[in-house]
């Protein structure tokens, strides 16, 4: 039990350049508090995230992955986030079989939603804390 209560998850965040990354920026400028567990990678669009990146991170032992993009309809590239959504749905189906589905999140955060960005990070961190560490972190056999 001790291990779990001290557990500080490591979360990888892929944020889209136009909305979510700006949202994260706004959260910082506005000094909203959110857990420091997320490591952010800026991508030009949520559809730039190949599901392979997520799978690579998970098999290497990351505790959670967050992909955040513009709200549907607001994509800078018109339709990127719709495509990302389909890909993530397909990925979810596969990860569900491998018992890793709950560790992957897709959220929409706009550039003006600094508050929401802080809430999303808090929510994701809490969910991952409940799940505990990624079982693949300690397994080196495959």
């Amino acid at each position: 039990m001790d291990e779990k209560s001290d557990f500080e998850p490591r979360i990888l965040g892929f944020l889209c350049n136009w909305c979510s990354y700006a949202g994260a920026d706004l959260a910082g400028v506005s000094r909203f508090q959110y857990p420091p567990n997320v490591r952010i990678i800026r991508v030009m669009c949520s559809s730039r995230v190949d599901p392979m990146y997520i799978v690579k991170a998970l098999t290497d032992g990351i505790d959670g992955v967050l992909v955040a993009g513009c709200h549907p309809g607001d994509c800078h590239y018109i339709e990127g986030n719709y495509r990302a959504r389909r890909r993530m749905v397909a990925l979810d189906q596969i990860l569900e079989r491998y018992g890793l589905k709950d560790r992957v999140f897709l959220e929409w955060v706009s550039a003006s939603e600094g508050k929401r960005f802080a809430e999303v990070i808090t929510h994701v961190t809490e969910e991952i804390k409940k799940l505990g560490p990624n079982p693949h972190k300690k397994k080196w056999e495959i």
Partner: peptide
Amino acid sequence: PDILFYHLTRNIHVAP
């Protein structure tokens, strides 16, 4: 290296 990563990658690319 990367046995599970390899199989999962094939899974996500080919399953559809």
